[in-house]
Design a protein around this nucleic acid. Structure first.
Lengths: 225, 225, 225, 225
DNA sequence: TATGAATGAGAATTCATTCAT
DNA sequence: TATGAATGAATTCTCATTCAT
């Protein structure tokens, strides 16, 4: 909220918040579609159904808009992930859940996926800083999961969690991006991505194949979606 | 060479080609550093040591410049990879070699790595098309390698090569990007990336751990670099 | 009062007027500080303690606001000057008093001085017209003073009052502006300005130095301020 | 010359300089007419007969354009004044010449006069600094002239040159501005301004009326203009 | 061919003014 | 009346591309 004077009434506050989110949503859509530079403020405004100037009541400038969007979405993701993962005590189960979580996120938020895969790699030093901070928490959760499995004796102790977390994240990120970009994408493909990734990772880091507990991760996208 | 129709002397032709490559090299450097939009044609010209207008004698426009660069570099990489991989008959060895190849490329061409990791995800529909075509060959080589290992009975027959190639590529791509972006990067780290990736992938797709042949991939960057 | 048509109670009328003047005062402060274009309506509203929109209940637009301010202040000055000068019968005494009046005004209203010195020269044709009309009365009083002295035989009959009034006004205006702009200004300096101006003018236009009556103008700023 | 790469050929250099001055001239005209803020870059470009963007090849931005103009014109004026005044040994003669110089400048450069009277009083802190530096030399020359006359015993020793220079400058500045703004202005009026100012100042500061040497300053604007 | 000054379309941002509450 | 969020016209500045030399 850059230039907005504080609104007294509860209703006014609610309307402001609603508009703030309408702009963020529009920004997500347009940034995902075009990337930062090809996304024009005018188009974001049009999609949000507000005037160009209105955007500058809620955000200092275009940069502030991406960064705010980035932070909001990353906070949302990290929250969600913590909820769906924090109380899982077995490292192997956590891998199952985290892969499932990542893939499902892509399934339910294709625009967010496109936005993140592109913007987290943007050149601009300014955004790069924010972007790196943004993925860190996510990567760290992967790191902790791996170390947890190592402590439990399920994952090999000689693997470097600091590197493997990059490998796992990169694998998921790229596969999901490829899926999202594909105009003919189906849920089946994504379920396959989930299963292949889980197997690849668990077999890849398990102390022995026996130790990896091959409970297949249940499919999604049918009943639920 | 976009618009150069003829050149009288052999020497003239050589000078032209030399200038063409000087521009491409400059473009690589500047694009890698700033990304497409923040890279200014004027700066590329300055780095190449030519006038702004000269660039338009060799390339139709800025888009054509990135695309040409992309294609040139991808062709270069695919050539190189074919040479270092095509005569390897064992799927497992090919995995060893391909990972080593990818990592080494990042080591020897950090600018190229930064350029590719960013530009292969660019928004513009035009570039996106070209980019996808560009990685395709590379991904396909990974696909063939996996299928080869499956036919040889070393890799599980139930894995989907079309998905696993994305996982492997994504893992390598992200880990290498992270390494390249890190200002304190060392060769040791990269060697570890190479070993971890190879192990993760081979164990992940092998029919059994016995079948995966754990010859460690030799380090690089000491004697050679 | 631009658009306020009526007000029910006497108290309501008084409150309106009070707000009207609060806005004018705020405008003076901000215009003096920033000049017309750099002064933002929002800031004037903030200083006045009203909402942006409220300003447009009292003034047609930003131009109307400066012009109203200009006219109000010029009326105030002319009133004040008439009071302190109209009953002085001797041209030489009037010069004394008018210089003193001008200088003292600057002393007591630095913001007004800065506002006038800048805005009376503003570009916009619209404001320029109003500005010229605004100084006219002031200049005319100077003109009459000079002519009075001429009729009384104290000032040379060959001087052109229509020109000399400009000279005197310009001299006072610039010297006062220079004083107001100077962050290290002191009352002493301003008293010196007053004395130098009085002497320069009186000697400059007197028929003879004997005729100029050198009663020194008393200092100010000590007891009174 | 903000972004212009250096031009090799002598002819190119000359053309560049010519365009640089065409833009400055156009800027003078438009700034004089409208003032800084109401002067649009597009109009300056139109008057100069160049594209909008061209202005930014020669000047960093609009501010740089005014400041450059200011500095160029002030340098021009100071040069001219030094030439026409520096070898005059008698303080009284110098007053004659300096008044004549000022008035004549207004006569020959009405646009410059309008530009200076407005812009030297502009609000913007940035320009204000430059503006004050700009008049300083001019004011100093007046100060020296007065002190010279004092040393020679022609001007009263009790006057404060530091104040009187402001008075004289202000008087000339305002009278010339009034003349320039007047659409019905004639040379005669200006000649009268010159004579009145000279007399007012010389009588005002002379030790005695006898000492002031009343050689009338010769008219101008007839034979020469 | 090569140059680089000139171009002008295009984009972000500001801010006076309006109007629903 | 008073408010202040919303508006969108207007303006500055950038930079890919052209073209006269």
């Amino acid at each position: 909220m850059a230039r907005l004077k504080y609104s007294d009434t509860a209703q006014g506050r609610k309307q402001q918040e609603e508009k703030y989110h309408r702009i963020l949503d529009a920004a997500l859509e347009v940034f995902a579609d075009k990337g930062f530079h090809e996304a024009k403020v005018t188009e974001i405004a049009r999609v949000a159904g507000v005037a160009d100037g209105t955007i500058y009541l809620y955000f200092k400038n275009k940069d502030d808009l991406v960064v705010s969007l980035l932070e909001a979405k990353v906070a949302f993701i990290n929250d969600l992930m913590n909820k769906s993962v924090s109380d899982i005590a077995d490292g192997r189960d956590r891998v199952h859940h985290m892969v499932r979580f990542h893939v499902r996120l892509a399934y339910e938020n294709p625009a967010l996926t496109r936005f993140l895969t592109v913007e987290l790699r943007r050149g601009s030093a300014f955004v790069k800083t924010h972007a790196q901070k943004a993925v860190r928490t996510y990567l760290d959760t992967w790191g902790e999961t791996i170390e947890m499995g190592q402590r439990q004796g399920h994952f090999r102790s000689d693997i470097d969690a600091g590197i493997v977390k990059h490998l796992v994240f990169g694998a998921l990120d790229y596969a999901c991006m490829a899926w999202v970009m594909n105009p003919d994408r189906t849920v089946e493909q994504l379920n396959r991505v989930m299963r292949e990734t889980t197997e690849l990772v668990l077999r890849g880091i398990a102390v022995s194949q026996q130790g990896a507990r091959w409970t297949p991760t249940p499919d999604f996208g049918r009943v639920e979606a």
